[in-house]
């Protein structure tokens, strides 16, 4: 490798070379077959590197991760909960959730955003049970920002939606907000309650899911 230009061929290919030097090298490539072949090969190496396939691990690594972060996959032993809501509250929550689920599905199907058959959550991964929940202030801010952003989309597109659709969405959001507020109040008295933390996270997720689905009803202008 005595040709001094050979050391500069990667710089040339990365366009990391002064213009005058680049011109000189290009003139050299016209006459030097060795350097021309190496330039061609280096180009192929760079292209080959960009085309490398991604590979899945040989085994599912999630169970090990779930264990280390304090979560267990679905199907594992459910967490024993310490329930602090009254029976009437439980019954009311069940009715509200059924109403929410049914009306939302009906609404989305009527609006054509969901397939008429097939399970709604068929593609969602199995839920995991949180055994160690740490609600961070940043996360709460991010969540609030995401909700606000979706609400902004809906607010902007509100005039393009059927009034019945808007009413059903708002009713369902109110139900979820009520459930969130209940869970938050209960957590004030029992902040370490794992079930309540899980329930709160799940309810917050439902709100985001509803907002996301509702936002898809707004025609893109």
């Amino acid at each position: 490798m005595s040709d001094p230009w050979m050391e500069r061929l990667s710089d040339y290919l990365e366009d990391d070379m002064p213009a005058a030097e680049r011109l000189a090298l290009e003139a050299h490539l016209e006459t030097c077959r060795d350097c021309s072949v190496v330039v061609s090969d280096l180009r192929r190496v760079m292209n080959r590197a960009r085309q490398m396939d991604e590979r899945q691990p040989h085994r599912d690594l999630w169970p090990g991760i779930a264990k280390r972060i304090g979560a267990t996959s679905a199907g594992a032993q459910p967490i024993r909960r310490r329930w602090s809501f009254s029976s009437p509250q439980l019954a009311a929550a069940a009715v509200l959730l059924m109403t929410f689920s049914g009306s939302t599905v009906w609404l989305m199907r009527s609006a054509g955003s969901l397939p008429a058959d097939g399970p709604i959550a068929a593609t969602a991964p199995p839920p995991a049970t949180v055994t160690a929940v740490n609600v961070r202030r940043n996360a709460a801010e991010n969540y609030a920002a995401a909700v606000e952003d979706l609400e902004r989309v809906l607010s902007a597109g509100r005039g393009q939606l059927d009034t019945t659709t808007v009413r059903v969405i708002e009713q369902n959001l109110a139900v979820i907000d009520q459930a969130i507020a209940q869970a938050q109040r209960a957590l004030l008295a029992d902040p370490a309650n794992l079930y309540l933390n899980t329930h709160l996270a799940e309810t917050m997720r439902r709100k985001l899911d509803l907002l996301r689905q509702a936002a898809t009803l707004v025609p893109v202008s």
Binding site: Q56, N134, R205
Partner: peptide
């Protein structure tokens, strides 16, 4: 999902894992 996961939602974090593990593992 990242926002939910930051709030302690492990199922949201599992979705992120499933989506990104091929690139990270590679």
């Amino acid at each position: 999902d990242a926002t939910l996961a930051a709030s302690g939602d492990a199922s949201a974090f599992e979705r992120l894992y499933r989506h990104h593990v091929p690139r990270i593992y590679s």
